[in-house]
């Protein structure tokens, strides 16, 4: 029977579904019976979910204009060099 320490050690592979079926089954059972590990698993899942679900901020207009101008200049430079 895995301990809480075993569960924590395997948490990343558990979340990424990289465990062999037997280890996964044992850890599933541990989580069902251990409220502390259940909370850690649940809140870690939520942590990852909000990071993955958070769209990146728009590039500020002035910065985007500067970037596009630099890209255009670079492209023109290359064309002239050909």
């Amino acid at each position: 029977m895995p301990s809480c320490k075993d569960f924590l050690r395997e948490l990343t592979d558990y979340l990424d579904s990289c465990l062999d079926p037997e280890t996964k089954k044992e850890l599933d059972k541990h989580v069902e019976e251990c409220p502390t590990c259940w909370v850690i698993l649940d809140t870690t899942k939520k942590t990852l979910k909000i990071y993955k679900g958070c769209a990146p901020k728009a590039v500020p207009a002035a910065l985007e204009d500067k970037l596009m101008a630099a890209v255009q200049a670079k492209m023109a430079e290359r064309k002239c060099g050909q």
């Binding site: 924590l8 948490l11 979340l15 850690i40």
Partner: peptide
């Protein structure tokens, strides 16, 4: 990579829990 990822995830979980946890309640 896996070891650092585990520790990063746990640290972030810990920090976000301080913000998002149910206030004034028993943890369980």
């Amino acid at each position: 990579v896996k070891s650092r990822l585990l520790r990063a995830r746990l640290q972030l979980r810990e920090k976000l829990t301080r913000v998002f946890k149910q206030k004034g309640d028993d943890a369980f």
